[in-house]
């Protein structure tokens, strides 16, 4: 067990270091602004006074190390600074929207992951059958579509033509769960389509990769039925790559959500991010980038640890 503990600890430490470096990167992005950041943000027409005020507001008149320490300290207390665009605390802008976004991602994930795994395993099991080929073409097509295309097609048919679901996800903190599910159905469906195709393709590939290995042939020669070959002998060894695929796609959800939120005018962090980028509201962009990056890094960390723990060579050392 010592080797595996060491590997897991190493991976955790690496994750922590990555987090720290990413936070530095995001913080220092201000420094990358050519010339004076405040001037750049406000444009050439700004008066010297407003520029100085913004400089002070951003803390640009202090040395970078101090500002970084201050910024990081603030974040650990939930203080992400204030928005340049409207002067409100960033935290206040984000909190409710983050909840909405996570709800949407979870909604899509709960449908997509089990469905995609099932379809992926079926395609591997029935490889080269009609089902497999059709699924191959269908998923390849689905992953080639831009999300907004899928989203607008869904709007056109399910909302405009059939009137089944609202084309705009009007969600407020007082919306109850059933209503929330109903109103966010279209965005969730759009996301589901995208990641189901990805997960399914990659699950199938991970399993088929194993089929040429001698121990799979051995299982067949011991009399295992095709179902048993896949479910018992291959799946156990494909666990690590499949978990990786799922996590990768969950991580993708948090970025894919940006487009879908814009299409359905869904009140999440994705739309806030796009608005803030076009307004060049740096503190808000920084905060959202940091939160998304942390989630992303933690998800990847989880996948890596699963693949270490599920490797019998590491789990049962010599």
């Amino acid at each position: 067990m010592t080797q595996i503990t060491r590997l897991v600890l190493q991976r955790l430490a690496l994750g922590f270091v990555t987090l720290l470096i990413v936070s530095v990167l995001i913080f220092w992005s201000v420094e990358l602004l050519p010339g004076d950041a405040a001037q750049e943000i406000l444009g050439q027409s700004a008066t010297p006074e407003t520029v100085t005020a913004l400089r002070h507001h951003l803390g640009l008149d202090q040395p970078p190390m101090t500002r970084y320490a201050h910024w990081l300290q603030g974040i650990t207390h939930g203080d992400f600074g204030t928005s340049i665009a409207n002067g409100r605390p960033v935290l206040q802008l984000i909190t409710g929207r983050l909840g909405n976004t996570l709800f949407l991602a979870a909604f899509a994930g709960i449908i997509a992951v089990p469905l995609a795994l099932m379809l992926g395993i079926m395609a591997a099991l029935l490889r080269n059958s009609f089902f497999d080929r059709a699924a191959g073409i269908f998923t390849l097509t689905a992953i080639s579509f831009p999300e907004f295309f899928v989203a607008y097609i869904l709007t056109l048919f399910l909302s405009v033509k059939l009137g089944l679901f609202p084309s705009i996800s009007n969600i407020t903190p007082s919306t109850d769960l059933a209503e929330r599910v109903y109103r966010s159905f279209l965005p969730a469906l759009a996301l589901t389509l995208a990641i189901t195709a990805h997960i399914m393709r990659m699950t199938r590939a991970a399993l088929i990769n194993l089929f040429s290995l001698p121990y799979i042939e051995m299982a067949r020669l011991k009399g295992a039925s095709p179902g048993r070959v896949v479910m018992v002998h291959a799946l156990r060894n494909a666990l690590a790559p499949i978990v990786n695929v799922v996590v990768l796609n969950l991580a993708y959800l948090i970025t894919g959500v940006v487009i879908v939120e814009v299409v359905f005018v869904y009140p999440g962090v994705g739309r806030l991010l796009v608005d803030s980028v076009s307004k060049r509201d740096l503190p808000v962009v920084q905060a959202i980038c940091l939160i998304v990056s942390i989630t992303y890094i933690l998800l990847n960390l989880f996948a890596d640890i699963v693949s270490i723990v599920s490797n019998p060579r590491l789990m049962h050392a010599k």
């Binding site: 290995l213 001698p214 121990y215 051995m218 002998h233 156990r236 060894n237 019998p312």
Partner: peptide, 8 residues
């Protein structure tokens, strides 16, 4: 070595 399933 290659024909035993490594997971069991």
């Amino acid at each position: 070595a290659a024909s035993f399933n490594p997971a069991f």
